[in-house]
Nucleic acid binder design. Structure first.
Lengths: 143, 143
DNA sequence: TATTGTTATACTCTATAACTATA
DNA sequence: TATAGTTATAGAGTATAACAATA
């Protein structure tokens, strides 16, 4: 029977759902959506980046990204500046308020997630990462 | 440093994103959204179930579920019948067309995913499932 | 009173295509 | 011609609260 992999996928999806429940609850306490937090977390501790780069990292398509960035700009959490070299580009970065949000929200989300790993040993981590690394490799390959 | 778990989470998210890219492409070829496919896949090979049950299995909240079911009903893929025992309940099940869709789409999604596990050994599966099982257990526990 | 499911509201995300400005 | 990003469009999912019918 060749459906063995379905069990693994189901487990993968369950883990992801559970983690999203945990993290989304925290994120929403701060008035952010999952996509918005994704942007904030991606921009955190960076000098900023172009929309293109941001889209590639978050897997949000450009039309959608404009809307998400608009809402973050309304909240004064990010700023957009025309590029100097290439004036087609926008350079997106966190405002001081955005950095404050990052500093405030990110540790909470992290702490919330971390609770669930309280008694993970180095071997546990290694086993998980090995398994996921192999899986990622298989999913990435062209088939 | 206690942020070791972030790497695992990132890998988990990447695996999930990759798999969703693979499966969503297939699902959309058949004119279904991810949520809609979720419902179809959940109802497939069952006698049907109540909205409550369906919401619990798919993690879609009841207000949202009504909308998703409406769209599936428009497409003649599911039917809703008042319960006989408890007339507050609706019993949701696949129509013959819905079953046909399940039979048609599900194997395609499965086959698409399966390609990526082509050379997985029993030991590979076991290692992945052990790691994910442990993770799921930790995420499920109240903290 | 509690539960099942719907309705109403308001927002967010989504993909896609056409468009503008720059390269 | 190609690229970066916006705008326009139309749909779909989301949470929430108020509601109807039934238990």
């Amino acid at each position: 029977m060749g459906k063995r992999f379905l069990r693994s996928i189901r487990m993968l999806a369950e883990c992801m759902q559970l983690f999203e429940q945990i993290s989304t609850a925290k994120v929403r306490q701060f008035g952010l959506t999952h996509s918005q937090f994704d942007i904030i977390a991606t921009l955190g501790n960076t000098q900023g980046m172009t929309c293109k780069e941001l889209g590639e990292k978050t897997l949000i398509t450009k039309g959608t990204l404009t809307g998400v960035l608009d809402r973050l700009e309304q909240k004064k959490l990010i700023s957009r500046e025309r590029g100097n070299n290439d004036r087609r580009q926008f350079f997106v970065k966190l405002t001081p308020l955005g950095e404050a949000a990052f500093d405030e929200v990110f540790p909470h989300v992290v702490a919330e997630g971390e609770k669930h790993f309280a008694d993970y040993s180095e071997a546990d981590y290694q086993a998980l990462e090995d398994a996921l690394g192999k899986l990622r490799h298989h999913f990435s390959a062209e088939k």
